[in-house]
């Protein structure tokens, strides 16, 4: 089993508030892991730490065999570690096609080209269009992002990530705010992604988690409480106590 992404003893605190304590995660190639835990457990913080948007106080982060702990966020993306955002973090005035084309151009090193018009980048535009088509956004690809429906914007979040050709994809509540029926559709799209991509996703809907995750990591108070298969997690008494108990009744 080759690991796509792994962390060793990652720590982070803000003053006296510990947001990550001794985090060790191993995400094998092509797997779909879910990261769950109550609000404030440090799930998004962990993604920020892994992608370099926050600097850990201690510990190491590996992408494949490479130690990426000290790399800036953009470098990590170029190596294949890519994230999406819980709150839409898009380019409001750019069209969907422009946004994804930009991401493709950045990947293939064409984004610094200023002497040639965008239409000349046929390959990049075609690739962007294909990505949008695969996520059923082709019909609205020439509309500015801010005019897209909310669910379409959530898909565009994923499209932007895919355009970077990730090896590891970290999805921060991809279906946040999406109605239930659309959310299943969205996760079907995620499940249909290439098996070359390892995925770690944060999600609060347990039905979705149990359906799409091969393994589940439970975080509480900045620590990993337990990790296991959906069957193990659903029968673990500690998880029931701190998380499932509340989620099922609340």
């Amino acid at each position: 089993m080759t690991l796509a992404l792994s962390t060793q003893g990652v720590d982070k605190s803000f003053g006296s508030l510990v947001v990550a304590r001794d985090i060790a995660i191993s995400l094998p190639q092509g797997e779909r892991y879910a990261l769950i835990g109550p609000n404030g457990a440090g799930k998004t913080t962990l993604i920020n730490l892994m992608t370099g948007m926050l600097r850990p106080d201690g510990g190491r982060i590996f992408l494949g065999d490479e130690d990426i702990t000290a790399l800036p966020p953009a470098e990590r993306v170029r190596l294949g570690l890519v994230r999406t955002f819980q709150i839409n973090t898009l380019f409001p005035q750019l069209t969907a096609l422009e946004s994804v084309t930009l991401a493709v151009c950045e990947r293939i090193g064409q984004a610094g080209v200023w002497w040639r018009g965008l239409p000349s980048e046929r390959a990049a535009v075609d690739e962007a269009y294909e990505i949008l088509k695969s996520l059923r956004l082709a019909a609205v690809c020439n509309r500015p992002t801010r005019e897209l429906a909310y669910g379409q914007q959530r898909l565009l979040e994923i499209a932007l990530a895919l355009a970077t050709r990730p090896k590891v994809l970290l999805l921060d509540e991809p279906a946040a705010g999406v109605p239930k029926d659309e959310s299943t559709e969205l996760f079907n799209a995620i499940a249909g992604l290439s098996k070359d991509i390892a995925i770690l996703f944060i999600e609060n809907d347990m039905n979705v988690v149990f359906r799409f995750a091969s393994r589940i990591i439970v975080m509480v108070g900045g620590r990993i409480l337990v990790e296991g298969t959906p069957a193990e997690i659903s029968s673990d008494p500690r998880v029931r106590e701190v998380y499932l108990g509340k989620a099922h009744h609340g």
Partner: peptide, 23 residues
């Protein structure tokens, strides 16, 4: 109107997202 111009508009529109697409 070039790819570079698109990247500039990207920085103006959302400077947080740019590093997340490897820019």
């Amino acid at each position: 109107h070039s790819p570079f111009g698109l990247a500039l508009r990207g920085i103006r529109e959302n400077s947080v997202r740019m590093p997340a697409i490897g820019a």
